[in-house]
Amino acid sequence: MLIGTIFAIFFLCLLSQLLEGSALVTILVFNMLSIILTFPLKGPLWCKIAWLGMGNLIGIVWNLVRLSLIMAATGIKTEPLSLVNFILGPVTDFIWLVPVWSLGLSVLSSLEHQGRR
C-alpha cells in the first residue's frame, strides 16, 4: 500500500497541472480506491502500478473528451443542454471508474492465478 500511495501521489501531482475541479476529484477517488482496494490484494506489484497508471491515463482522456463536449455545448448556449450537463455530469464524471477498476481486478486475478500455477 505504501508503494501504491507513493505512485498515486506522483500521478496526482502530475495531473493537477492538467486538470482541475471535478475531473481532479474523480482521479483522486480512483487513486484512493486503488490504494485501499487493489494494492492489498495478492498479485504482481508491477500489474497494480501499471493499472494505476493506466487508470489515471484513461481518467485524463475521459475528462478531456467530456470537457470538450461541454465546451462545445456551452458554445451553443441552450438551457436544456445546461440542465442535462448538470444532471448527468456527475454520473459521466465517475462512470469510467468502475469499468477500469474491475478490468484491472480481472487482469490482476488472472496473473495471480497463473503465478500460483
Binding site: S102, S109, H113
Partner: peptide
C-alpha cells in the same frame, strides 16, 4: 455495490466475473 462485488469476486478467485 460495485466494489463489494469486485472484492468478493476477487476473493472467490472469479477473474472472468469481474469483467
Amino acid at each position: 455495490p460495485f466494489f463489494e462485488v469486485g472484492i468478493g469476486a476477487y476473493l472467490d478467485q472469479r477473474k472472468e466475473a469481474c469483467r
